[in-house]
Write a protein that binds this DNA or RNA. Structure first.
Length: 259
DNA sequence: ATGGTAGCCGAGCTA
């Protein structure tokens, strides 16, 4: 089973590009971030034509996440528990049915900049809520994949110019510590388990020729429960996608599990 | 240090 995560930066502005990738890569499951539309504007039929079941947690203009799966989705949950006042659409969870069911969570973790504002506090609070939810889900002792745009650069090796990110919410010790705390629960960073080398970037800014200079960062991750990590086969970062016409600033990351 | 780009939506925010 191949599970993809991709921050598409508006699913409708990039629909042909996104559909083209799905036709070629044909992941069994995918989580999308920054769809930037409400549920009614999500191109559900286009994905259904490719054989996917669709679950959306949309929002006008900003954020928005979705899950696509060839197998039926059960127990779909929208929104990260722990704060009823939080109206940002950044979390979707479902069980992918099959011989071995897999619980998949798609997240769009808050960026958190500028750090001197309430945005950074929101990011850290969100990560604490995610930690709490992960603890609950790990109790099932089943295959679990939490994939998405984490907006965290885990190590200096995950940035072409780490010095440029000092002080940034994506690289602050608090953010990296919270990401490490998730791993300390028993979750495995899929990329670190199969590769872990430097320079495996998933995001290049649109500005200042970041792609041309390979000024990238690794911020799109998949964390696996022990039952999923035991079945991990490979991780593919589809770097070529960044060089396509009208690309997202993120590229797809695909995790393959022997299931 | 600044400005550089993209999307949404039609000015300014978010990233």
């Amino acid at each position: 089973m191949r599970i993809a995560t991709w921050n598409v930066n508006s699913v409708n502005a990039r629909l042909e590009t996104v559909l083209g990738w799905f036709e070629r890569a044909s992941p069994d499951v995918a989580v999308l971030q920054e769809i930037k539309c409400v549920d009614e504007k999500f191109p559900t039929e286009a994905f259904e034509r490719l054989g996917y079941n669709v679950a959306v947690h949309g929002q006008k203009t900003y954020n928005g996440v979705a899950m696509l799966s060839k197998a039926p989705l059960e127990d779909v949950r929208r929104g990260l528990p722990g704060d009823e006042t939080d109206e940002q659409a950044r979390y979707i969870e479902a069980v992918v049915s099959g011989e071995t069911p897999v619980r998949v969570v798609g997240i769009y973790l808050p960026n958190g900049n500028p750090v001197e504002t309430e945005k950074f506090a929101y990011k850290l609070a969100w990560m604490e809520r995610l930690n709490r939810r992960a603890r609950e889900l790990l109790r099932y002792e089943e295959p679990l994949v939490i994939a998405g745009d984490y907006n965290v650069i885990p190590r200096p090796e995950d940035a072409e110019k780490p010095d440029a990110w000092l002080g940034d919410a994506l690289f602050r010790p608090e953010s990296r510590g919270a990401y490490r705390a998730l791993q300390n629960l028993g979750l495995t960073d899929a990329f670190m388990a199969v590769d872990g080398g430097p320079g495996a970037y998933t995001f290049w800014d649109y500005q200042a020729g970041a792609w041309q200079r390979n000024n990238g960062i690794r911020i799109d991750h998949a964390l696996l429960s022990p039952q999923a990590a035991d079945r991990l086969v490979r991780v593919d970062i589809d770097r070529e996608q960044r060089g396509e016409e009208k690309p997202s600033d993120h590229v797809p990351v695909v995790v393959e599990l022997a299931l």
